[in-house]
Amino acid sequence: MSKKLHISRLKIAMKELFQSYKLLLYTMPLFILFFFAVLYFVPGGIFYNRLFNPAAFPNQELWIQALLSTRFDERIFILLLPIAYTMILTWRHFEVLNKSERINLTPITYLERTVAITLFCVAGLLLGTLCFILYDHISVWWFKHLYYEQVLHYLEQQGDLYPSIGKSTVFFTIPIWNIGMISIVVLSLMPLYFLSRVFFKKYSVFLFWVLMVGIWIMLFSALYSLRPQVVSANIFPIRLQQVIPVIISTILYIVYWCLAMATFYHKLKEKEI
């Protein structure tokens, strides 16, 4: 094992993080559950009205119609919560890395610290995502258990013998593909967040969002300018794969990630306290 990355020291760096922020980490599943509850029972929503304003659905038929017509796929935005939560989790740690004499003189290399904080954040995001998937499946199972038979019966009565229920209703989970795409976007933001915390002493969150929005605008502008002209006559939507092959975009993504993390590591290493 190299002098810069030693497993036992990496474990200590992880323990240091876990010991400091374990309470916050433990509460993340509850936090996500709370937001699921908020989303389903937001005042004015169908579940809120069903519970607290029964007059809104005088009969079962209206309720079933509401269930079939109300979109609930915006619950995917709950996946943004683990990002916010991970930022809160690690906020103090970056402050300590930037300012603490003790931490910067602890015999743990900056590579070990970089790997530890990355693993900790990935673990936090993974935990949040898994909680989301779990709650999503449980809620879908529960709604199906309660109403699916009634919905099918209602549709049959309407003469719809081959019912097609909207994928965005409460009867379908968020597709794993969509979750995967959001996770990739979230992971791409992580090094930027790290960099903003070591580069900017003040207003790092604000500057992080400015940096992020700037990068996304540049990226989309570049993609737009690369768009083949013939496509303008095409009625089909333009996909990223048409502009940049998947393999190239994957390589670009990995290179960007590694470069950003390397910049973070060097900035951390060269920081004077």
């Binding site: 002098k3 020291r9 603490s100």
Partner: peptide, 22 residues
């Protein structure tokens, strides 16, 4: 360079104590 071998043989007692809350 803050090498680990060097850091493991140095300790700095600062005026402000910033020990973790454990």
């Amino acid at each position: 360079t803050r090498e680990v071998t060097f850091l493991s043989d140095v300790y700095f007692v600062t005026d402000e104590v910033d020990l973790p809350p454990w």
